[in-house]
Design a protein around this nucleic acid. Sequence first.
RNA 1: CGGGGUAUGGCGCAGCCCGGUAGCGCGCGUCGUUCGGGACGACGAGGUCGUGGGUUCAAAUCCCGCUACCCCGACCA
Length: 490
Amino acid sequence: MAKVLTSKEENYAQWYNDLVLKSGLAENSAVRGCMVIKPYGYAIWEKMKDELDRMFKETGHENAYFPLFIPKSFFSREAQHVEGFAKECAVVTHYRLKTDEENGGLMVDPDAKLEEELIVRPTSETIIWNTYKNWVQSYRDLPILINQWANVVRWEMRTRLFLRTTEFLWQEGHTAHATSKEAEEETIQMANIYAEFSEKFLGIPVVLGNKTESEKFAGAVETLTIEQLMQDGKALQGGTSHFLGQNFAKAFDVQFTNKEGKLDHVWATSWGMTTRMIGALIMAHSDNNGLVLPPMVAPIQVVIVPIYRGNDQFPAIAEVANRIKDQLKALGISVKFDDRDTQKPGWKFAEYELKGVPVRLALGPRDIENENVELARRDTLEKKVLPQEGIAEYIKSLLDEMQENIYKKALDFRSENTHRVDTWDELLDVLENKGGFALAHWDGTIESENKIKDTKATIRCIPLDGEEEDGRCIVSGKPSRKRVIIAKAY
RNA sequence: CGGGGUAUGGCGCAGCCCGGUAGCGCGCGUCGUUCGGGACGACGAGGUCGUGGGUUCAAAUCCCGCUACCCCGACCA
């Protein structure tokens, strides 16, 4: 097969980039750091979006939409928050252009300067809490359980398709509660939803845990994260859920009268997941032939490729293909019959492998004669010839099996690449030679954490389900009760 | 913002040192043969060589300026 991708072994970053471009997910645009998400990439996003949206609604959330622009003054209300985002904001200063009489073309009209600059949202806590202020008077107005699907802009120094773009798509949930306990439960519930979504839907195992003080969201009391391991041994933060305490309620003066008739500030959470998950999907499962998509996220689950010479062979093949297609559709499976005569079968095989279509059926004169069909599965690249009879039911259970197999493979990979380390030298050995997650004891101090950061790796999280044990911090030697995950990250 | 690099048909590149007819692969179009793992042949279309200036009889090539993009660091979902 002609080589269109750089291999993972040769250059992982290049492989990733080639794959995104060649499989038609996205490409760079004329705007620095901003990508064009192409139809195939967007179809994957829509699948993710539909599933998450369903999960949110099932847990009582509603969608709403807040403005793209946020007045600059809103940002300075919460001290931690402004510090976290100030360095990466796009700012609107004018509202009009005019013809440039001297140099031709257009210029910003200096007379159209805004009284107060508008920030293109990097996240919406501020505008939302400014709005919630008007919505909440009594405990009877709570909780507010809202999610928004939106684009946000963060002016990052360096960008990479899906993994870090200046503009990206995401959902952000913002909830308001009467009690701390309720808000904390919401924080955990949403983190669990992300974990379940990642594992069951995307087939990517996660470690759910707390961020350290220095890594948590700007303005949060506590940040929960799901950490995923990519095939090159680097970690990726897959989604975060924040307990915001009363920080934003205080900053935006959101108070309510509780059951006891006393005035109190509202308790808050926020949580988000982004188009970055498409990058995670690629880096968790794909191979040197292209994408490997878990069936649940695949826009096309089955493709049927006809093989024939001369137009007289085609009608009989098309008839069988359409019959199988209808049977699959009846079982809720998305299927495409690629009857284009402009591309050859070999070309199509390679193309659908590149696009990660889970199951490929080939139908040729031989199969028509024997009432068979050739089936190839993307995850293992196995091919076999099967009877046409009952093929749809076979594929339905095969798709389930593949979903499970892809997850299992990623889980095994993570197990093989998770190392318990008890000394500083062991940590360095993992970071420099092995990659993956290092499980190590840490004393909980910022000093030790900074020492770890000098290695370019960071504490990814303090796992929620980590077992209690006696240990000593690998930096300071002080006692510790729990291991944390240390890894280099995207 | 510090360090390095690149800019030539749609894409990837060569040509530049040593100035003199702009070339290759892929892709694209037409026709024919093909079609069970990215087919082959013939013919054809497509580039004011990033941009502004300078040197020269002559500049993709030499000199000066500018711009954009890419890679490596600091920042980050």
